[in-house]
């Protein structure tokens, strides 16, 4: 985690927004600002998280509700995600989507799979 903390100061506003958005989408339910901050990579001030959240609310990517004495936040499920999902299936049907879009990962063979598992255990064991 050291490397991440070092790079904290270099995160751009856009990166921070993306991170907060990712936290909200990855979570199953609604989160408070403090909960969001706990899940964000690198330590931020809660006020920073709140500023990012207000920007995302202005862009209508995040909604907030009052729950008890604090606010909880959730991602907005709007047309953008639906459109992107349509793109997924569209490109899945195209025979050569692999080359059309640079994908993060491709499939693994059984041997590769074993190798990757060993690798993750190795790293976590240290």
């Amino acid at each position: 985690m050291n490397g991440v903390e070092q790079s904290n100061g270099r995160r751009s506003a856009g990166q921070l927004e993306n991170n907060v958005l990712a936290v909200l989408w990855a979570a199953d339910g609604e989160l408070t600002a403090v909960q969001i901050n706990e899940r964000l990579p690198g330590g931020l001030a809660v006020t920073t998280v709140l500023t990012i959240l207000s920007r995302l609310i202005a862009k209508r990517q995040v909604q907030r509700h009052r729950q008890g004495r604090s606010y909880v936040f959730a991602p907005v499920r709007d047309e953008a995600a639906y459109t992107a999902d349509q793109m997924f299936s569209l490109l899945d049907r195209g025979s050569d989507r692999q080359a059309v879009l640079a994908r993060f990962v491709s499939g693994l063979s059984e041997e590769d799979e074993r190798l990757m598992k060993d690798l993750l255990q190795d790293r976590e064991g240290r």
């Binding site: 989408w25 862009k59 990517q61 999902d85 997924f88």
Partner: peptide, 13 residues
């Protein structure tokens, strides 16, 4: 058709 100000699009899948 996606909004211009979005760099990251999350698909709930």
């Amino acid at each position: 058709r996606l909004p211009d100000d979005r760099e990251l699009i999350v698909v709930d899948a």
